[in-house]
Design a protein around this nucleic acid. Sequence first.
DNA 1: GTAAATATTCAACGACCGTTGAGGAATAGT
DNA 2: ACTATTCCTCAACGGTCGTTGAATATTTAC
Lengths: 251, 251
Amino acid sequence: MRAMLKRRRAPKKTSARPGKERILDSAEELFARHGFYGVSVRDITEAANVDVALVNYHFGSKRELFAAVFQRRAEMLNPERLARLDEVRRAALPGVPTLEDIINSFTYPLLERSARGGPGWKSYFALVAQVNNSPEWGPVLMTQYFDPLVERLIAALREALPDCPIREIYWGYQFLTGALTITFAETGRIDKLSGGLCKSSDLDSVHERLPPYIAAGFRAICGVRSTLVEEQASLKHLNPTRSRNRSKKTE
Amino acid sequence: MRAMLKRRRAPKKTSARPGKERILDSAEELFARHGFYGVSVRDITEAANVDVALVNYHFGSKRELFAAVFQRRAEMLNPERLARLDEVRRAALPGVPTLEDIINSFTYPLLERSARGGPGWKSYFALVAQVNNSPEWGPVLMTQYFDPLVERLIAALREALPDCPIREIYWGYQFLTGALTITFAETGRIDKLSGGLCKSSDLDSVHERLPPYIAAGFRAICGVRSTLVEEQASLKHLNPTRSRNRSKKTE
DNA sequence: GTAAATATTCAACGACCGTTGAGGAATAGT
DNA sequence: ACTATTCCTCAACGGTCGTTGAATATTTAC
């Protein structure tokens, strides 16, 4: 990227889509691929066939453009995810939904759009994956746009795991978001590793496997933590050559 | 970062540690925090108290410096992880080790060093987390320096799950690496979400929970996939309002 | 002690960076 | 028709970017 692109003026090009939207589209794709600092505003405006100055006119600054890209689809996304969660809970009344259903209501709207929502959505989730793992942007943007929904997810998980200590649910969520995040990055690493047997772009396969995988993980750590007495016996696994106790790691 | 730093000459400063190492140390920390494009070579050389030109003298280019940072600790790391895996397998003879032991031999050397190996190691793993989720760097660096070890891990997992289809093991590894990756990013998001109940810097907690969590996930998807007939019945979870079949998602 | 090799400094290069202000074109309101 | 508003173009600003070649200092080899 940032290397050599033709530096001369773009043609007039009267596209139907207004310039502001075209900037958002180009920025989405480029930011997703190279990160905030890996893309210049000139890269973006040339890809969008608009003048450089338009970024500052419409968004104020490059940073505000980045935030706008992040915000745009987040706001389309979260109402549906919330509705799905509510629907799953309603359908399970008077009981509570399964862990798998809860997790699926959280992940499915993302996987579905990334798989079949068009290239913009695919780029967007790759961008979210990047932001989620960034100490610079994650605490700002993820917290602002996604945490309200996550709190609802946590509440539903607590309903479904009434005997599970709350800390375990947060840790379980942390691992869930990590697994989901690397899915969206689609680095193609699993393709190479598996010799083509698995494709990181095959989000249908993720959709089939992620909910049961994560649900089983939740049940495992909740069970372990809630019964402290059997813990010493059942956790001999951690390092077979040394003993392990709860207070402080000795390995 | 990249903003305003004092632009004037650094003092002579005859540190004991040679300039090449100091550059690697500073680059490690800065790249981990802001990414490759978010850091200038001047940021690095000023933090290391050396001249700008030294980067190109010692490493050739900024990109090669980045690769050198990535390589340095990978080479210290992988022999130990390999030895741990072998030890776990040997200790289980004539049987095979548990899933938890196998996973732990993979994750423990990382978590232990990130927790107590010094600030350099902490930065390094944050950098690895970033690279692992980057479509630009991941396929190059992760593949080159970590895939040989991962292939050994996969082989051990196959031994421990003899009836599990190979594809499921690769997917299970993908989720494992995602959960591990977000742990190293230490964005502090779980701290806020949990109101201080969990700390993303508390890698001992991760060490206790990740192996049983991931092992349970492996067992869940292997079981699901290996018994196709019961699948239709057991997977009603995915969307309670619509039917779901294996060939193509209809949701 | 002297020469060779290695390490570091200094000043500067051309290219690209994000942002700006003045002004032109298109559009909407009346 | 005129005006006000919005959208967009153009040229340029000061600053920072990665990299370089020549000169100097330090260490190593003999």
